[in-house]
Amino acid sequence: MRHAFLTDAQIDARALAHRRGLGFRDDEAVEVAVLLARLKARYPEFSYERVLDGALGEAEAQWDSQARRLLLPEAVFQAAERGEGRALMTVAHEIGHALLGHEGSLNRGPAGGRAERVSAKLRSMEYQARRYAAAFLIPDTPAVRRLDATALSERYRVSMSAAIVRHSELKSGESARALSSRQGSLDL
């Protein structure tokens, strides 16, 4: 499968459609156990495995498209279960790779790693997964756009830094949303 270029508006639209398709209300935080159960129910080929801490090296999680499996170190899984923002973002990032159809063995680790610096395709997939994770956890809706970063962090249980970035994306994306709504529905 050829890697597709997606605009920010397309990524946001897909994340919102997936979020709603998995039964999450726009005004509720995503709980990782519920998310993983709903993914498995909706996509029977999807699986996840909790692995020992350190089993993935520096990676915080990994999506393997060939095995259709998400690997989560125990510490990341437990932190996501407790609602810790970074861990929840990590899980959503890897699920973004899965639901956006990215191929390969993809890791969530420190941004700007060697592979990202060398490969434009990998850099694009990692950007899309980061954008998708934020859009999946904090949906782009009129009511959400009215919230400030503190309210986003509290309501959606993400870190303050993630809420600030997403707040900025939502505020700067007005023209992209208007354009995409005029162009009609997106292929989700």
Rank of each mutant, 00 (worst) to 15 (best):
G112E: 06
R86K: 11
T90A: 14
E94D: 07
E58W: 04
R114E: 12
G57A: 12
L70T: 03
R108D: 15
V91R: 03
L99Y: 00
V91Q: 05
G109R: 15
R68T: 11
G85N: 02
A59D: 10
E74L: 03
G104P: 04
G113H: 15
A87Y: 01
G104C: 10
L72V: 11
L100F: 00
S65M: 05
E58S: 14
G109P: 07
G109M: 13
P110M: 15
W63C: 11
A79N: 05
A111D: 14
A87I: 09
S65Q: 03
H102I: 02
E84S: 00
R69S: 01
V76S: 08
G96F: 04
H93Q: 00
L72C: 02
R69T: 13
S105W: 07
A87P: 03
A79K: 14
T90L: 10
L99P: 01
S65Y: 02
R108I: 09
P73A: 08
I95L: 13
R69N: 09
R82Q: 06
R114S: 11
P73G: 10
S105L: 15
V91P: 02
A115C: 12
A80K: 03
A98K: 12
G113S: 15
A111F: 12
L71E: 09
E84F: 05
G104F: 04
A111P: 15
E60N: 13
A111G: 10
A75Y: 02
V76L: 07
R69E: 09
E103P: 00
N107F: 12
R69F: 01
E81F: 06
A75W: 07
G85A: 00
E74T: 00
A80I: 06
G85M: 12
L106P: 04
V76A: 03
G57Q: 11
L100S: 09
P73N: 01
D64N: 15
P73Q: 09
G113P: 02
A61G: 15
H93D: 08
G113W: 14
T90F: 08
R114I: 07
D64H: 14
G57Y: 12
Q78K: 13
E103S: 04
Q78T: 00
S105Q: 15
F77I: 00
R86I: 05
A67L: 14
P73S: 08
G113V: 01
